[in-house]
Design a protein around this nucleic acid. Sequence first.
RNA 1: GCCCGGGUGGCGGAACAGGCAGACGCAACGGACUUAAAAUCCGUCGGCCGGUGACGGCCGUGCCGGUUCGAGUCCGGCCCCGGGCACCA
Length: 826
Amino acid sequence: MAVESRYDFRRIEAKWQRYWEENGFYIVEEDPYKPKYYNLEMFPYPSGALHMGHVRNYAIGDVVARFKSMQGFNVLHPMGWDAFGLPAENAAIKHGIPPAKWTYANIDNMRQQLKSLGISYDWNREVTTCSPDYYKFTQWLFLQLYHMGLAYKREAAVNWCPSCATVLANEQVVDGACERCETAVEKKNLEQWFFKITDYAERLLNDLDRLTGWPDKVKTMQRNWIGRSEGCEFSFTVKGSGEKIPVFTTRPDTVFGVTYMVLAPEHPLVNTLVAGTEYEAKVREFVEKMKNLSEQARTSAEAEKLGVFTGRYAINPVNGEEVPIWLANYVLMDYGTGAIMAVPAHDQRDFEFAKKYNLEIRVVIQNPENELPLDGSLTEAYVGDGVMVNSGKFNGLSAKEGQSAVIKFMEANKIGRGAVNYRLRDWLISRQRYWGAPIPIVYCDECGIVPVPFEDLPVILPEDVEFRPTGESPLKYVDEFVKTECPSCGKPARRETDTMDTFVCSSWYFMRFASPHAANRPFLKPAVDYWMPVDQYIGGVEHAILHLMYARFFTKVLYDAGMLSCEEPFTNLLTQGMVLKDGAKMSKSKGNVVSPEDTIEKYGADTTRLFILFASPPERDLEWSEQGVEGCHRFLNRVWRLVVDLAKWQKETSNAVSVLSTSDRDLRYKVHYTIHKVTEDIEKRFNFNTAISAIMELVNAMYQYRDSMGNKMNPQVVKEALDSLILLLAPFAPHIAEELWEGTGHQGSVHRQPWPTWDEAALERSEMEIVIQVNGKVRDRIRVPVDITKEDLEELALTQVKKSIGKKHVVRVITVPRKLVNIVVK
RNA sequence: GCCCGGGUGGCGGAACAGGCAGACGCAACGGACUUAAAAUCCGUCGGCCGGUGACGGCCGUGCCGGUUCGAGUCCGGCCCCGGGCACCA
C-alpha cells in the first residue's frame, strides 16, 4: 500500500488542500441535468481571526455540502465577508489604520484560516460587502426600494454624545453614558432614511407558516417580533381646540371605562396643548426628562409609572365624556398612534398609574365568576373575559361580542374603524458613520431629494480619510465626496453623507452568490432562478430576528419587483448553539478563548472538525474539551492504523472466499447498519455526534473482526468494510479520507464518489434479542429466531421467567413485536 | 413578568414512534507490552445491598403527583440554569 504507517496530518492536509485548490475542485456552475442544492452558512464579520463559533458553523455546513454532493446534488457552497461595520472605524481611531486596509487584511487572514480548515467553498464566488463591486448593488437595491416607494425619510431620535459631537450606536452607550468619554448620552432628532418593512408585516407573518424547515423557536420569536394585534382606531377630540387625537386599542369593549387618556411625551401635539398655560413648565420638564431615557429604562417592568397632567381634556366619542389628558413614561411614540385611551379597571399599567395619580377607576367588564367591587376598592386590573356593564346600550354583551359591536358602532357613526396594528417598526437604515455603503441620494436646493441615477453607481466611498478621535464620521468633511452636481438640474448639490446599516448589505448577499460577477445588475435572473432559494441556511440563533427578518423582507420586495421567483429565501434553517469553555461563552475578557489556529496546528483540521461535530448536536451549546480533542485525534489514528493494516493484508492475501462465515455476516451487518445510521443521522436529524459514534463503533467492530479472524478474514468483506468506512468518514474528516481512499488503490477523489447505500438483505437477521419483563421490570433476555410466532414467544417467555412469577398468576401478556414480552402478574 | 430552550454517571453526551437507561467518547482505576516512559492493547467503571463466585435484589434521568401492563419520553404542579423580549395599549 502506498500509505505510510504514520498518520502525518500536516503533510496530508496541506497536500489535499493544494490539490483541491489547483484543480478548482469546488467550483460549480449551473447544471440543468443535476438537482441543485444551495448550502449556505452565515458569512462572518472579518473581525481579525476565526473563532470556534465560526469553525463550528462552517464545519457543520461542510458536512452537509460534502454529503449532498456525494448524493449527486450540484452543490453551491459559497463564502464571503460582511465587511462594513463599526469595529473597523474603532481600529482606525485607535491604531490609525484606515478601515479599508484593516478590513482587507483581516479578510486575507481569515480566508487563509478557512482554507486551512479544508472547507469546500467555491472561492470564485467570494463576495465582500465593502468592495465597490458589491456595494454598487447595495446602492442599486436602495434605489430600487426608493422607486418602489419603500424608502422614505423622516425624523427619528439617535443617541447623541454632546462632548464627542457624534452619534452613538446602542452598543456604544454604556449605562446611559458615552463609552468613550462617559458623558451622559442625549437623544437628538435627525432626518433619517427608513425602509417600509411594515408594509410587509402581514406577509412576513403569514409566510412563517410555509417555513416548515425552520425551528419553531425562531418562528415564534419572529411572530412575537411582528406582534400583530387586532382592534380599532378612533379619535378623541381636544376640548376647546377641536383637535383630533387618534388612539389604537385592542379592547374597544372597554371604551366606556376610559377615565383619562395618555400621550407619549414625544407626541407632536404636546406643545400646542400646553403652550401658554400654567402647566407648560412642568410638562416641558417632564418631556425633557423622558427624552434622554432609553426605551428600556423607561418601560422596564420595575420602572415606576410616571406622568404629568397637561391641564387639558378630551372628549370620548362614544359617550361624550370629558377625560383629562396626561403624559406618561409608559406610552411610546413608536407604537400605535403614540396615544392611548386609559382604562384603569381593565389594564394593569393604567391601573397602577390611576392609583398613583388618583384617577377614577371604572369597572365596565364584570367578572362572572367573582364579582368585582364597583366602589373603587379594586386591587388590580381585571383583564379577563366578562359581561359589559356601565356601557350604555352595550350592557349585557360579552367582552368578546362587545369588541366587534363597538367597532361596528364606531364605523356606522364614522367615529373610528377596525384596525390591525403591528409591533414591528419601519427599518431605520441611516447610519451617521463612515464605514458603510453610502446612501445614493443627492440634495439639491432646486430639486430637493434626488436619487442618484442607476448608471452613476457606485457612489464611491473615499478610502483616504482622516479620523477624529471623537468617532465622528469623516465623510462630512470630504469635499470631493460631498460636493457634487444635481443629477436632475446640474446645479451644485450635496451628497447624503449617511451610510447604510450593514444589515442592508447582508439582506441580499445570498442572491449575489448566484452570479457574483454580474456587472450591471445585483444578480442575473437565470442564475438566481436556478440556485434560489437557499436549501439549507446555517448560523447562530442570535440572528433569529433581525438578519433573518430583513433577508425575508428583501426577498419579498425583489419578488414583487419581478427580479426573483421565490418569496422566501431560506427553505431550511439550522440554528447552532454556542461554543463554551468552562461553562461560559468564550471571550477575551474571561480569558477562556481557545484559538482554532492553535488547535489546527497541534491536531489538524480533521481532528478539530471531528471533535466539534462529535461533542454535541449542532443546536445545543458545546463545551470545549482539550481531552475530547485528543480523543478524536486518537480515533483518527486508530482509523489510519486499521486501514493501513487491512489494506496491506488484502494486498498480500490470495484466498478468495465465497461462503460467508457468521463473523463475516456480522461484520457486513455492522457495515450496512452504519451506512444506514450515518445517512439518516446526517439527512434527517443533523445529529453528527451520533453519526460519528456509529462510525467509531464500526471501527471497533472491524478491529474485533480482524483480531478474531486473523487470516480467515474474507477479502471481499474486508474491502467492503474499508471502502464504506472511508466514504462515511469523508464529510467529517475530508483530508484523511482522501489520503486513505487514494492509499487503498482508488482512482479519483473520495469526495466525487457516490454516497454508499445500504443493502437491506445484509440487515436481515435470523435471530433477535427479546426482553422479558414481569410487571414492567426487566427479568431476562432471550435470543429467538426472527420468525418466531407470537404464541411460541410468549410460551418461551413464560417458562423463562417462571421463578420471577412464583405463585402469582398471570393476568395479561403484552408482546411488542421484535422488542419485548411483558408479563403482568398479580 | 412573558416567550423559547434545557436539567440523564466524575464529564460531553446516547436512548429517533411510550418498550433493555447510560451507546460513543473523555476522565479515573487495574493489567499487558517496555530497562523506563510515551504510544498501543486488554479489563473495570451510576448508587446501595447480598453472595467466595458466575450472579442476584433494590434504588436511580431536577422535585412532587398523575395516566399506562410499562414513563428519561405523555399530562398537571413546582424548583433550578441558559437565551430572547416587553409597560406593545
